[in-house]
Simulated assay, not measured.
Amino acid sequence: MPTPVSERVQKRRSALRAAGLRPVQIWVPDTRRRGFAEECRRQSRVVARADAADHDLDVFMDAALADLGEADT
């Protein structure tokens, strides 16, 4: 007879705790909520404008990309 789901879950959680882990709960936006996509677009536009206004960002990103290229060689 198969082990009930609740027992398997408890066994798995106990094993994770024994490995030094602990559970956490986080709350994230509900992507199904009305207006979610528009809010994502709004925030993306705000970030894009901030990036466009930050002239040092291009220099920083180019330097970071160059560092990545050096790590591969």
Rank of each mutant, 00 (worst) to 15 (best):
D30W: 02
D30K: 00
D30T: 01
T31G: 11
T31E: 14
R32P: 03
R32L: 15
R32V: 06
R32S: 15
R33N: 11
R33C: 07
R33W: 07
R33T: 12
R34Q: 13
R34V: 12
R34C: 03
R34E: 14
G35H: 01
G35K: 02
F36I: 05
F36R: 04
A37P: 00
A37E: 13
A37V: 13
A37Y: 05
E38N: 05
E38K: 05
E38S: 11
E38R: 07
E38V: 09
E38G: 02
E38M: 04
E39T: 04
C40P: 01
C40W: 01
C40G: 06
C40D: 04
R41A: 06
R41W: 01
R42N: 09
R42F: 06
R42V: 05
Q43K: 08
Q43H: 11
Q43I: 07
S44P: 03
S44E: 12
S44Y: 07
R45Q: 13
R45K: 11
V46I: 12
V46M: 08
V47Q: 08
V47G: 00
A48F: 08
A48Y: 08
A48L: 12
A48Q: 15
A48D: 13
R49C: 04
R49Y: 03
A50K: 14
A50E: 15
A50R: 15
D51V: 15
D51C: 15
A52V: 04
A53I: 00
D54E: 10
D54Q: 06
D54S: 08
D54V: 01
D54F: 05
D56R: 14
D56V: 01
D56Y: 08
D56G: 10
L57R: 12
L57K: 03
L57C: 02
L57N: 01
D58L: 12
D58P: 04
V59T: 09
V59A: 09
M61F: 14
M61C: 10
M61R: 13
D62N: 14
D62I: 06
D62A: 14
D62W: 06
